[in-house]
Write a protein that binds this DNA or RNA. Structure first.
Lengths: 185, 185
DNA sequence: TCAAAAGTGTTCAAATTACACCCATGG
DNA sequence: CCATGGGTGTAATTTGAACACTTTTGA
């Protein structure tokens, strides 16, 4: 952190410095703070963790602070407890759990989508973050029943394989009550 | 924080120093970190917030760091946005939300109870934290149906008004799946 | 014309709520 | 013996998963 910076700004700056992703990270959400005295053997560091939504990801470039940067699927990054440095396995696990829960209780998933999107786009976000497949019909019913989650534009997206899907925009609702629970199995 | 202290230890120490409550806070859980540059006009401070479970509360005493200490019901503390100093209204609001959610998804509520407790004791914790009344019969059914939440001792607590209630101990389960949702209205 | 994706609706099972009702004790 | 809180059970309703089925396009 810099002397006159708040936590989110610092997080956004660091993201940019290390990866070159200064595309507008439209959502940065704190999930935890890590401060064991020996978590980084080089020096005493307290880390405040944020997870971000960056729609339409560009290829990351190593920024001023990093030797290299690339995108790694989260399942791969967590595949072994030793794959990441220091306590980063624990941190990433916490971040993922928080993001997964956020999709249940808030409408942030729309931030991963373009301004106009289809229900299938949104379903893709849920499936990616939750790491499971979801029934298209039930997902459609649930999402369109939640007031203020998505609002139809009246337009359709042409050009793809099957029946052209209707386009939606994000609604004004920020939370989902009751939560959109992820189905078992 | 002291040079060789992790975050939870520092939180436990601060709790003790400011209130004299060094009874074993059997649960300390982080909920957020606050770091706006001007949140405390006296100096730059980053605060990591923890909420604690302290069963059978003693009267707090102002410790080495505080002029005075007393217990205040959370509804009263949050009754006005200006009742607490700095950003403490926001912090306490976050803490309460987190504690409320914790009761839905984990078994921490048993930590508020003595080693042996009745379902009514447990229901009292839920009603206090959630700030609403709960149907005794339904609560009983739900809780006893969740495997590993409470285990009967076979004993009863005598001496009270009506039928002597059965006593339970906390089970081994740490999380509740699916969550024990708080009923609407 | 066929396969694929979108979207709607139906069925059956599971969960939830409200509440009736019996139990066991102290006053 | 009756009011009180504990505990069990049930009926009615709601929710949810699975999946059949229609729609509308590109190949």
């Amino acid at each position: 952190m810099r002397p006159n910076e708040d936590l989110v700004s610092a997080a956004a700056r660091e993201l940019s410095e290390e990866t070159g992703l200064d595309s507008p990270a439209s959502h940065l959400e704190q999930f935890g703070t890590y401060g064991s005295p020996d978590r980084d053997p080089r020096m005493r560091v307290v880390t405040v963790g944020y997870w971000a939504i960056v729609p339409d990801l560009p290829t990351p470039k190593a920024g001023t602070d990093a030797a290299a940067a690339r995108l790694v699927p989260v399942a791969e990054a967590l595949s072994s407890p030793d794959r990441l440095a220091f306590d980063h396995h624990e941190i990433l696990t916490d971040a993922l759990a928080r993001a997964r829960r956020a999709l249940e209780t808030t409408t942030v998933a729309t931030r991963f989508c373009p301004t106009e999107f289809t229900i299938a786009d949104l379903r893709g976000v849920y499936m990616a973050v939750w790491g499971r497949s979801l029934d298209p019909g039930n997902f459609q019913n649930k999402v369109t029943d939640i007031t203020g989650f998505v609002v139809p534009t009246g337009e359709r997206r042409e050009g793809s394989r099957g029946r052209p899907p209707e386009l939606y925009r994000a609604g004004h609702a920020k939370t989902i009550e009751p939560p959109l629970r992820r189905p078992p199995a």
